[in-house]
Nucleic acid binder design. Structure first.
Length: 269
DNA sequence: TGAATTGTTATCGT
DNA sequence: AACGATAACAATTC
């Protein structure tokens, strides 16, 4: 569930408590999800200072003194919490970084799908990521270039992190709605104007969602306000805010997908 | 109780 | 062979 806006919100909320702090210890018994294995990762992090905290796609990136990076992917149900001395321990703690401030940074994850890497750089851990959709270099023509030569359905293509980094199910559906593109449309059938609309929609949706601190739609991610403003996601059977037609749920690439049948006419085959 | 949930990867087919 | 579609997987909640 955490997509780019939710990850960005975590980064902004936790950055002040992290930058400049030193990692005293790393504790985890999350064998399957920590790379390299816990003791090796712990040794690489111990004593290092956190010099910067930022985001790349859906990854949280801690830049450590000495040059290594710690990458945290929240996947479906991960979230960051502070472990305060004397406070009750949150549920589902999978990893903890003890800091010289006396606090612990906790990665909590009910479903255990999250991941932690300690690596020399992002590419070494997760391979190639597509451009940041909010970066100035991500222009409409840059998007068009990334779609060129592909003939996949547009929705799975947008979910592919090597095409654009950071979009997940919610914001892909929202972006396609504002661009008035049906999610099954083949990418090579998009007119230049549609690509420009899609580019603008992606940036508009992500910027708005960051401003609202992300989307809270269930118990997993608290604190967001974007759910009030979603146009299609999770609104099956409700009227389209633009035209009044009823929002339809369908399945695209194994994913729950939401469209306005009038605003997003199905691509003819 | 089992259906729903998601990003990634493995696998199958074209 | 490269790409696209699909299945599988992790584990939990309601």
């Amino acid at each position: 569930m955490p997509e780019l806006p939710e990850v960005e919100t975590f980064v902004r909320n936790f950055r002040p408590g992290l930058v400049g702090r030193r990692i005293v210890a790393f504790e985890s018994h999350w064998k399957r999800n920590v790379r390299p294995r816990e003791q090796v990762a712990a040794r690489a992090m111990r004593g290092k200072q956190i010099e910067a905290v930022n985001r790349r796609g859906k990854l949280i990136v801690l830049h450590l003194s000495g040059g290594k990076v710690v990458l945290i992917h929240l996947r479906m149900s991960g979230r960051l919490e502070w472990g305060e001395p004397g406070a009750a321990e949150p549920r589902h703690v999978r990893a903890a970084w003890r800091l010289d401030s006396g606090r612990r940074l906790l990665l909590c994850d009910a479903r255990k799908f999250g991941r932690i890497w300690v690596a020399d750089d992002i590419a070494a851990a997760v391979g190639t990521l597509g451009p940041e959709p909010l970066d100035p270099h991500f222009t409409a023509s840059a998007l068009a270039a990334r779609l060129a030569g592909r003939r996949r359905q547009i929705k799975p293509l947008l979910l592919d992190q090597s095409v654009v980094a950071g979009l997940g199910n919610i914001y892909t559906d929202e972006s396609l709605f504002y661009a008035r593109i049906h999610p099954l449309t083949r990418s090579d059938r998009l007119a230049p104007g549609q690509v420009r609309r899609l580019h603008a929609a992606i940036r508009r949706v992500l910027r708005t969602a960051i401003d609202r601190h992300g989307t809270t739609i269930d118990w997993i991610y608290p604190g967001g306000r974007m759910q009030r403003e979603l146009a299609v996601y999770g609104r099956a059977g409700e009227p389209c805010r633009r035209c009044g037609a009823l929002i339809v749920a369908l399945r695209v690439g194994q994913r729950g997908t939401h469209v306005c049948p009038r605003c997003q006419p199905a691509a003819e085959r």
